[in-house]
Amino acid sequence: MDMDGDPYLVFKIFIPIVAFGFLSICCAGFCKVFQRLRKEREERVQGQVQAADQPSVYVIPISLSEDELYRPPRYSTVQFYEAPPAYHELNLKPEASPVEPPPAYSESYSHSPSHS
């Protein structure tokens, strides 16, 4: 083929390259749009599932008579406990401390073989 004889040879080479580049850009854009739409749809579905899974408020039924229902609470029935002892008055539990003292400390030397 002679390059001087065909003036449209440059267009025959560059038009497919430009068309391929344009199609690649369009496909990448469409993929991103579809991924974003799918992600939004999944988030919306997850939100609906979480809203449906939330436990409802459970009210514990109390059987009170009509006069107990509207009467103020009776504080005379509350049990009072004495204050705990001060920290310096506490004793150690017997199981927390050993009965016999630990063995005496002894030193031992071991000679390691010399590396030659």
Score class of each variant (00 low, 15 high):
residue 75 Y to P: 00
residue 111 H to S: 08
residue 96 A to N: 08
residue 87 Y to H: 06
residue 41 R to A: 15
residue 91 N to Y: 06
residue 78 V to P: 00
residue 17 I to Y: 01
residue 92 L to G: 08
residue 92 L to E: 10
residue 115 H to I: 10
residue 87 Y to G: 04
residue 45 V to C: 01
residue 79 Q to R: 09
residue 100 E to Y: 04
residue 93 K to I: 00
residue 92 L to S: 13
residue 36 R to Q: 12
residue 20 F to R: 04
residue 109 Y to I: 09
residue 6 D to E: 11
residue 64 L to S: 05
residue 97 S to H: 06
residue 76 S to L: 07
residue 46 Q to I: 08
residue 98 P to N: 07
residue 80 F to A: 11
residue 79 Q to V: 08
residue 104 A to I: 07
residue 49 V to M: 12
residue 102 P to G: 04
residue 47 G to P: 00
residue 32 K to Y: 13
residue 18 V to Y: 03
residue 106 S to G: 04
residue 71 R to H: 10
residue 97 S to E: 13
residue 77 T to S: 10
residue 9 L to E: 08
residue 20 F to Y: 04
residue 36 R to N: 08
residue 105 Y to R: 05
residue 38 R to P: 00
residue 46 Q to D: 14
residue 14 F to T: 15
residue 30 F to E: 09
residue 4 D to Q: 06
residue 13 I to C: 00
residue 80 F to H: 12
residue 3 M to R: 09
residue 53 D to M: 11
residue 23 L to I: 13
residue 58 Y to N: 10
residue 2 D to F: 03
residue 67 D to E: 15
residue 111 H to W: 03
residue 45 V to T: 05
residue 67 D to H: 05
residue 72 P to G: 04
residue 56 S to A: 13
residue 93 K to S: 12
residue 71 R to N: 10
residue 115 H to V: 12
residue 91 N to P: 01
residue 17 I to N: 07
residue 11 F to Q: 11
residue 70 Y to G: 00
